[in-house]
Amino acid sequence: MSVVSDTIDWLTDPINRTGPDGFVNRTVEHLGYTAETIAIAAVIAIPIGLWIGHTGRFRSAAVAITGAFRALPTLGLLILIVLFLGIGLTPTLIALTVLAIPPLLAGAYSGLESVDRQTIDAARAMGMTEMQILRKVEVPLALPIIVGGLRSAVLQVVATATVAAYVGLGGLGRYLIDGQAISDYAQMAGGSVLVILLALVLDGLFAGLQGAATGRRPKKQPTTA
């Protein structure tokens, strides 16, 4: 199949690897957008999510807002912000942050909700302050779900950061947009493969992190009195 061999040729041609337009550089750009987005979204969403989960307040509002954010098409939002602010990194970061907030927020509050109420009651009865309960009991126990939210957010952002290229930025999306403009299927397919590989690597990384967060405690109960 020539499509496949063309794609392999594109991926293995050293010309495509180096330089400002090479995929090493594009991958770094792509990772940069992802990391910045996740950092901003986490700073916003995780404290709010923890607060909602800890206090149980505004939960239905949080569910409604995450639902609404989810329905917003990132592409449309991005273009809208670009028309307001002009071409640049900021619109992309804002649009991707809106995308990343729902899973992070939901991960944080549903993680805290999953913690046994009785454990929290016991911690309070022992004389932990609310902050200590959050730090020493709720967050450690909710960590697998919080990291799960983070994983989901990273995956979505890394996949969607391709749209940044549409509004003139770099990243791996460049190959998809440029390739489409000149009907260079090999370039588009090659770019796609790179995005998939990057997504898989990151997902694997976070799966490991999630496993580490879950795996410290044994789950089985070999009960003998």
Binding site: D116, Q118, T119, D121, A122, A123, R124, A125, M126, G127, M128, T129, V137, P140, L141, R216, R217
Partner: peptide
Amino acid sequence: KVELRRSIGYVMQHAGLLPH
């Protein structure tokens, strides 16, 4: 409240141990 609780022992049903 917090200091008071630290000065009083509390034992509950199902022990209420921290699972982690």
